[in-house]
Simulated assay, not measured.
Amino acid sequence: MYTDKLQAGSIFPNIKATLSGGEVVNLSEPEHGREWKMVVVYRGKHCPICTKYLNSLEQYVEDLQELGVDLIAVSADSEQQLKAHKEELNVSFPLAYGLTQEQMLQLGLYISTPRNAQETDHNFAEPALFVINGDGKIQIVEITNAPFSRPDLDILLSGLRFIRDPENNYPIRGTFSK
């Protein structure tokens, strides 16, 4: 099956999801006075690799904040699944739920069907990570079809430090097209 992938340098779409407290947020809009936004898409509560990755991401929150990068993670889970998942998570950044299949397609994500009812009760997105710059454009995009293929967080943070340093004048990469 072919999916339209979001391109580096394109405007991140207006996608909304719901936080565990019920507040609806726009995934592309940075908050707390920050200029950039990192959106981490994860498979859901059923994925132990996602739980580990989200917990690992917590150690980078302060560094991201210092770089002016706001962080949110989102899945297609229900509110109940997110609440149950939060018991396994030790994170301070916002977690959103309710990503629809239409939104997943709009983001160009790989979508999987559950292997069985014990895994989960809905189609879900495979992992992705988007870094949206101050102009609302996709600075970094990582879309994968498997839970064990994700960006190394140390390397990602190092790269963001380099990109965010104005002296480097680092452009959005990967924008060449025919």
Rank of each mutant, 00 (worst) to 15 (best):
Y97H: 15
L153H: 07
R34K: 13
K137I: 00
A128V: 01
D70V: 05
K83A: 09
D135W: 06
D121F: 08
E119A: 09
G108A: 03
N168A: 09
Q101D: 00
D154M: 03
G33F: 03
E88W: 11
Q103K: 01
V39W: 02
K37P: 10
D152R: 07
G98Y: 12
A8N: 14
G159D: 09
T120D: 09
S78Q: 02
E31F: 02
E88L: 15
K45V: 13
L67E: 12
Q81R: 10
Q106Y: 04
P166T: 08
M1F: 09
L82I: 06
A128I: 01
G44S: 04
M38T: 03
H85G: 08
E58R: 06
N14M: 08
P147W: 05
Q106F: 07
E142Y: 14
S177T: 01
F162Q: 14
I72M: 07
I140W: 04
K45H: 15
R43A: 14
K137P: 08
E58Y: 03
F176I: 03
R34G: 10
P114Y: 08
T144A: 06
T51C: 11
L95W: 03
D135A: 14
K137F: 00
E29S: 15
N123L: 05
L67H: 12
L19T: 13
K52I: 04
I111G: 00
V131L: 14
N168R: 11
P13W: 00
L67Y: 11
R150F: 04
I138W: 00
E87L: 14
R43C: 11
V39Q: 05
L99R: 06
Y110T: 05
F162S: 15
A117D: 13
K178F: 05
P114T: 10
D4W: 01
G9Q: 05
G33M: 02
V69C: 06
R173K: 14
F130I: 10
E88K: 15
S149Q: 08
K86F: 07
H122F: 12
G21K: 09
L129W: 01
E142N: 14
P147C: 05
I163A: 15
R115I: 13
K5H: 04
N14T: 07
K52Q: 06
V141N: 00
D70E: 10
P48F: 13
I72L: 07
D4T: 02
S28P: 11
V69T: 02
A8C: 13
Y97T: 06
T113Y: 08
L107W: 04
K16W: 05
S149I: 12
V91C: 04
Q101W: 00
I132G: 01
C47E: 08
Q106V: 13
A8Y: 02
S28I: 10
S28M: 14
K137D: 00
C50A: 11
P166Q: 06
E88H: 13
E102F: 00
A125S: 15
I155F: 03
V41Q: 08
H122N: 08
Y110A: 10
F162Y: 15
P147M: 07
P127S: 12
G134N: 12
I138E: 00
I138Y: 00
T175A: 09
D63K: 14
C50G: 07
I11Q: 08
V141T: 04
Y110G: 03
A17K: 09
M104H: 02
N133M: 07
L54G: 00
D154T: 06
H85L: 10
E66G: 15
K52T: 07
G44E: 02
F124P: 03
K178D: 01
Q59Y: 08
T100R: 04
T18R: 13
